[in-house]
Design a protein around this nucleic acid. Structure first.
Ligand SMILES: [Mn+2]
Ligand SMILES: [Mn+2]
Ligand SMILES: [Zn+2]
Ligand SMILES: [Zn+2]
Lengths: 148, 148
DNA sequence: ATATAAATGCAACAATATTTCATTTAGAAT
DNA sequence: ATTCTAAATGAAATATTGTTGCATTTATAT
């Protein structure tokens, strides 16, 4: 489902976006591609103690600008980032999919495979993009729950 | 459309939720009911200079807890609050409608009249609530745009 | 090997969220 | 009407998060 990438491919990605191939960037990419849930800046900080939080902040910003990752706010309003699977371009994202926020583990899942139902807005509103948010129990937490 | 309320009705609302009828609370209620867009804490601060921002912070929190208002994050991740029209209960909201965030004026509109299309999630996900976010041009900004 | 622009780390600063506590006040009891 | 009490407010303090400036380091083009 999610295309697993190796280090060479991450280097290629940075190349394509005219970003220098630095250790912090490669580590962030590899972490984000290894999970099937979105990653918050605190998540990164907790793992990469040796990288400055400002550097992580800037990496997330530039990756989002370039269309490598997109930002999703969870139920508490904290920003989470997930890799784009929608051929997003610099400053122009197309990540119009469903986001699922688990109320137990707080993880944010991008449900890329689901397409959004079309909807008609009241007269006068000119929509440019849509996102559907769902919250509830994710598969893992639902299983743990029913076992008890 | 939006039921306009007077001060007696705001006092009743506070009564019903076992909240004391204080001046700051009544003013916040009256401001939020007078607009058809959501209100951020900075919005309130800009108008009610004499009320401490911690008080506003606490009023918004308790109103949300009681089911009087609900929280919506806009495109920048700042929290906006709008009055509930879905008979929400304490700690249990039912505000499953479309939210529209204008990219120009940044206003957040609750489109209460629209019902959400039903959607089936991948196996294992147990959704409890849905929200659809749309962003683009609101009626006002669209008009201004086409006049120029 | 050298030069240069980009990226990093650190410190400083700004904005926001949250806690603590002394004082005030709404509403209940007398 | 007066007194009492829990709730609410305001002010200050602290915590967390977002952002900028600048000196130093590093990737990469020459
Ligand atoms: Mn996504
Ligand atoms: Mn709403
Ligand atoms: Zn979960
Ligand atoms: Zn607008």
């Amino acid at each position: 489902m999610i295309p697993v990438k190796n280090n060479y491919q991450f280097e290629d990605m940075l190349d394509k976006h005219q970003l220098k191939k630095t250790a912090p960037r490669l580590r962030v990419l590899s972490m984000m591609y290894s999970k099937n849930t979105a990653t918050s800046q605190p998540d990164l900080e907790n793992v990469m103690h040796d990288i400055d939080r400002v550097t992580l902040y800037r990496i997330l910003n530039v990756f989002e600008e370039k269309g490598i990752i997109h930002k999703v706010f969870d139920l508490d309003g904290t920003a989470n980032y997930a890799v784009c699977h929608s051929d997003c371009e610099a400053n122009h994202h197309h990540d119009e999919h469903v986001h699922f926020n688990c109320t137990v583990c707080k993880n944010v899942y991008c449900l890329n495979e689901l397409s959004l139902p079309s909807i008609t807005l009241p007269a006068g509103f000119k929509p440019e993009s849509f996102t559907l948010y769902a919250s509830g129990l994710c598969p893992k937490c639902d299983k743990k729950n029913s076992v008890k």
